[in-house]
Amino acid sequence: MRIYLIALCFILFACQSKTYKVTEIDTKQVIIDSTYNKSNEIEAFVKPYRKKINNEMNKALAYSPKAMFKSEAKLNTSIGNLMADAVLELGNPILSQRENLKIDAVLLNYGGIRGGINKGEVTTRTAYNIMPFENEIVVAKLDSLRFKQLITYLVEAKRAHPIAGLNLTLQANGQLQLVEVNGKPLNQAFYYVATSDYLVKGGDHMSFFTKADTTYNLNYKLRSLLIDYFEQQDTLSSKVDSRFTQLNPKS
């Protein structure tokens, strides 16, 4: 009988789920540094991918006869002009084919130029250095008021934001002397401005883009466009030019 009771108890308690409570907690944070050896298994797994990426990144796309960095000049730079011209040249056929429209001007942002071009071989890695993000080209349809705000933004910033299709001359005192779009004064009701999806959402305080009448995403990454442009150019020839200048202060 006694044995039976014990057995019964055992069965009962076996069915009864236990209630565990946390009674103590230890916490720590471990820095993953070279005190931990590399795992051969993971290294062997990653190796072919790493090799493929390095091969791809080291692929020569073009030749640059000079170094191009955004610190080159105040109002327009070789690398900025290259980027803006590339967007105009490779973006236009897409907008034309899809929407039967033409890009009037390009505006990117100076801060978005994340790296430079060294003299010599231009590789895929160069494009990743200049543009590591996945931003895509978007064309914004701006009415004349918003477009004038864009011009005011450039005049006030006095920075080498990459532009194309535009010609701006500042007086010595910093006031606007002349503005032209493709050689013509401002006389259109709307302007089609190619930019990035980051800026079209108002990034870098370009709030005029958020008031765009319509936007057209070309689904073309800025980095992919640069890679395509490099391959097409073969030898890069961008230089500082007269698209955005300031008259010399009188001495």
Binding site: Y20, K21, T23, I25, K28, Q29, V30
Partner: peptide, 12 residues
């Protein structure tokens, strides 16, 4: 970094 939290539990 990797975070590490050790929980100790008892059946009260």
């Amino acid at each position: 970094n990797v975070g590490r939290i050790d929980f100790y539990l008892d059946d009260l």
